[in-house]
């Protein structure tokens, strides 16, 4: 197990236990590995890299409850990254045109890339299209950093509706990216 895997796994496990700053460090570090991973595999579609990094981060976040701490983190992250990559190929229907390798046993954490290009798709714009009961909890809790209780007070929603709103909103965001909404 590589040193970065050990470190990332530790951060994620702490994040899953409610340590938001460890989780932040995990996602930040993960984004550099995802960027390097996608940049190699999307050498002919360099403009897509940052969008796919963001899509994969959202997928990791929305599906974080499926990580089993007893299993290697590399395999989990690699499977998600690969799934999103194949999904992009399918959407673009260019898989045959590309000769980028789609190997199975590549270490996602072997390389990193901190130079973020600008994403072409603006997630902030997509967020605006969400219905209020999803958008408002995300804006207040996730963007302005209010707590659940404060968000509930500001929006007049119940605390459980706020939590559900964030959860469903981020899932809806992923669905919008896939082009299903």
């Amino acid at each position: 197990m590589s040193a970065s895997e050990v470190r990332l796994r530790d951060l994620l496990v702490r994040g899953l236990n409610g340590d938001a700053s460890a989780y932040h460090a995990f996602l930040k570090d993960l984004s550099t590995h995802l960027r390097a991973f996608f940049r190699v595999r999307l050498s002919r579609l360099p403009d897509e890299v940052e969008d796919l990094v963001q899509e994969a981060l959202l997928a990791v976040h929305n599906q974080r409850h499926t990580y089993d701490p007893g299993e290697p983190l590399t395999a989990w992250v690699h499977a998600i990254a690969r799934y999103k990559l194949v999904d992009l190929y399918r959407r673009r229907a260019v898989r045959d045109a590309l000769n980028d390798p789609l190997d199975d046993e590549l270490d996602v954490f072997a390389s990193s890339d901190t130079e973020a290009a600008d994403a072409r798709r603006d997630l902030a714009k997509l967020l605006e299209r969400l219905p209020d009961q999803q958008r408002l909890p995300i804006v207040h809790m996730k963007l302005q950093g209010l707590s659940v209780v404060e968000t509930a007070r500001v929006t007049g929603m119940s605390e459980s509706a706020v939590k559900v709103g964030v959860h469903r909103g981020l899932k809806a965001l992923a669905a919008m990216i896939r082009g299903e909404i």
């Binding site: 994040g15 409610g18 938001a20 700053s21 932040h24 996602l27 984004s31 996730k142 950093g145």
Partner: peptide
């Protein structure tokens, strides 16, 4: 990243 981690 900041948005996803915020209040997690």
């Amino acid at each position: 990243v900041a948005m996803l981690a915020s209040g997690a």
